[in-house]
Amino acid sequence: MPPPRAVPTRPALSSRTLYRLHRLLEPNGLYRFVARVVERHAWLRRPFTRTEESVKRKVFGCRMCGQCALPVTGYACPMTCPKQLRNGPCGGVLPDGGCEVYPGERCVWLIAVERAEAGGHAGDLERLHRPIDQRQWGESSWINYWQGRDDGLWTEPGGRATPVDLGLPVLVTGKGDRER
């Protein structure tokens, strides 16, 4: 089944609540173990993934890309952008902050910037997001996150986009950056 239409969505919970909640969900030995077990058994994986989907759809308008960017976007989901831009708003944002495709909806990146800055996480907005793996649609991002597969999704704030670590699989070469 194709994912639902991408329509900019304002999260149902405050960023403060979500930044707090995140601390409880950070990967640890227990979560890693749970994720491994759940992933291995389809009879566990399916209901787990469905639960994740229904919760995240309600709160974030989640479309199940399987590679969650929420922790570094003020918990506003960039995949609800009709262009699915992971690195910031497009140039077509309307003067009133509306989305160029859905003028009645506020640009989700505007929401993201406001929430990240208000929550003291402005540095997150400087991270470069790598292209996503389109095979992960419909998969549980929690399982991916707890097993550390999301670690390479974005760079450190202000980090340069080198060495070659852009694609999937992640590759590292010894070559230096070409300086201007």
């Binding site: 699915q84 997001h129 070659v164 852009l166």
Partner: peptide, 23 residues
């Protein structure tokens, strides 16, 4: 599939490292 920033990044990888996204 990519956004504009990722396209720029990809182009630079092609040029500076002679490498596709696939590696």
């Amino acid at each position: 599939d990519l956004d504009s920033t990722q396209m720029v990044w990809t182009a630079r990888n092609l040029r500076d490292h002679g490498q596709l996204l696939s590696g």
